[in-house]
Amino acid sequence: MPWFVKIEEGKVEKSTFDQYVSAHHAYVQELIAKGHKAKTGYWAQKGGGMMLFEAASMDEAQNIVALDPLIQNDCVNYQLYEWKIVVE
């Protein structure tokens, strides 16, 4: 399956963002359980992060991102890319 990356930048106050972090973590655990091999993290600098995951297509990847609590609660701006791995 292809890999996808959601690169995000926070757009709300930390206190608002933090309200949805546990739901985001639970969502990523669901993705892992469904076989999407998801990984999520944040930049050492303030204000953003990234989620890597597998999906069958860009359409599926867009649907996965749309269900992320950080997206549903308008906490981040993001870009979604298919990541072509050249060396493993």
Rank of each mutant, 00 (worst) to 15 (best):
A44M: 13
A38V: 02
I32E: 02
K39L: 06
G47T: 10
A26H: 11
Q19R: 07
S22I: 11
K39T: 13
K37Y: 01
Q45G: 08
K39G: 12
V21M: 07
D18F: 09
K39V: 04
A44C: 14
A38Q: 04
W43S: 09
S15A: 11
Q19E: 14
H36Y: 01
A26N: 15
Q45I: 11
T40V: 13
T40N: 03
S15R: 12
S15I: 09
T40M: 04
T16D: 08
Y42T: 05
Y20H: 11
A23L: 08
T40I: 15
G41K: 07
K34V: 00
G41T: 07
A44Y: 10
Y42A: 12
A33T: 04
G47P: 07
K37S: 10
G35A: 03
Y42P: 11
K37N: 12
S22Y: 05
E30L: 14
K34W: 05
L31F: 03
A26D: 14
T16E: 14
Q29M: 13
V21L: 14
H25F: 13
V21G: 02
S15T: 08
L31C: 05
Y27S: 02
V21D: 06
V28N: 01
Q29P: 00
S22C: 06
G41Y: 06
D18E: 15
H24F: 09
V28A: 06
I32Y: 00
A26V: 10
A26E: 12
W43Y: 15
Y20F: 13
Q45H: 05
T40K: 03
D18R: 11
G47Q: 09
G47I: 13
L31Q: 03
Q29W: 11
A44K: 08
A33I: 05
Q19L: 11
S22W: 12
K46N: 12
Y27P: 00
A44T: 07
Q45E: 06
A33M: 06
V28E: 01
E30M: 13
A23Q: 15
K39H: 11
G35S: 02
A33K: 07
S22H: 07
K34G: 01
F17T: 01
Y20A: 04
T16Q: 04
I32P: 00
V28I: 13
D18M: 08
V21Q: 10
W43T: 11
A44Q: 11
Q45T: 09
G47M: 12
H24I: 04
Q45P: 03
H36Q: 03
A33C: 04
H24Y: 03
T16C: 03
